[in-house]
């Protein structure tokens, strides 16, 4: 905890330097960053809303990495989930609540799982490198969303590449203000994934396969089956993230739907050392950073480019301190 605090201090000091170079006054800018993340209810709401997709995709990435599958495709799986949730939510929206909502969430989960399974099958059956496969599937998913909002899902007015709003019966209920039920669902899922990974035989197999596929095979586990089931779960989580984003925040699908949450998820998972509890904290941190950086532009007049540099610099500082901690532990264990 002390070390994490130290990392944040170092990160802020580095950011202050960057801000100084950019010509902004560092202290008001960082104050705006903090206020924009946790300053009042508006800020807290933004932080929670931005945390939700990062938490789910972060869990998705962590789970896949645990099983030794480099799933870079959370982005594409999220997009497919958003696409499916929109399509199903729009077509079933006339039914009574909560049927359309459940159908839409189910569709999002299934679509994400399907998209992830494609990459898993390619590796298991054909030996295709999953990094390449998942990245390529990201592009295909982005194009599919683009096609859908210019084609079958385009709004009736036909003006902007976006779908019509999803009917209310398919939307997530609000818990408080703009905070939707999906946030609570994501937090609960973090606990579920932790239990799955560390308290079930399925999770044990995933971890053994990830640590050493050869040893897993000798022990009688099928690495292929483990990869397939892990990717089913991983894709389901990422797909759900996209579905929740549509049903809880945007209310509709549009071109350029994701602002790269599926990629940020990789940083979230790595920073958390692939642990679900850590993913929750890391997602909160990145969510706060995203919310605060918007405020840094709006309140302190720092340009978006420098905001991005501050974000990346903070991540680097955290990773560097994490790495140095790893070395200290290693040195203590092997003097």
């Amino acid at each position: 905890m002390l070390r994490a605090l130290a990392a944040v201090v170092v990160a802020f000091a580095a950011s202050a330097l960057v801000l100084l170079v950019s010509g902004a006054r560092p202290l008001p800018a960082l104050a705006a960053l903090v206020a924009g993340a946790v300053g009042d209810r508006f800020a807290l709401t933004d932080t929670l809303l931005k945390t939700c997709p990062l938490l789910l995709t972060g869990l998705a990435v962590a789970l896949a990495f645990r099983c030794g599958f480099w799933n870079i495709g959370a982005e594409g799986q999220l997009l497919m989930g958003a696409l499916a949730a929109t399509a199903v939510g729009r077509t079933t929206g006339a039914a009574t609540f909560p049927l359309p909502l459940l159908a839409a969430l189910g569709a999002a989960t299934a679509a994400g799982a399907l998209w992830a399974t494609l990459a898993a099958l390619l590796r298991v059956l054909r030996g295709v490198n999953e990094i390449v496969a998942t990245i390529m599937l990201n592009f295909i998913a982005a194009r599919l969303v683009g096609w859908a909002v210019h084609g079958p899902l385009m709004e009736a007015a036909g003006r902007y590449p976006q779908s019509d709003p999803v009917p209310t019966a398919a939307l997530l209920p609000m818990v408080a203000g703009r905070v939707h039920l999906g946030v609570a669902l994501a937090a609960a899922l973090a606990a579920v994934i932790w239990a799955l990974l560390f308290r079930t035989s399925v999770g044990f197999r995933w971890r053994v396969v990830g640590d050493n596929a050869q040893a897993a095979r000798v022990a009688g586990f099928s690495p292929e089956r483990a990869v397939l089931t892990a990717m089913l779960a991983s894709g389901a989580l990422a797909g759900l993230a996209g579905g929740i984003e549509v049903l809880g925040v945007t209310g509709r699908l549009f071109e350029q739907f994701s602002s790269g949450q599926g990629y940020t998820a990789i940083a979230v998972a790595l920073l958390a050392r692939l642990h679900p509890a850590g993913v929750t904290l890391a997602a909160l941190f990145f969510g706060a950073l995203a919310a605060g950086s918007g405020a840094m532009q709006r309140v302190a007049g720092v340009s978006a480019v420098f905001v991005a540099i501050v974000q990346a610099g903070t991540l680097l500082a955290l990773l560097a301190l994490e790495a140095s901690r790893g070395r200290t532990i290693a040195a203590a264990e092997h003097p």
């Binding site: 933004d46 945007t250 509709r252 549009f254 350029q256 602002s259 918007g294 405020a295 309140v299 340009s303």
Partner: peptide, 22 residues
């Protein structure tokens, strides 16, 4: 004056809302 870069409809809404409330 103040300026912000916004990419997606949720970001449009967030920024509109924040400026207006301020």
């Amino acid at each position: 004056v103040s300026q912000v870069e916004t990419r997606t409809p949720p970001e449009f809404e967030e920024a509109f809302r924040d400026y207006a409330r301020r």
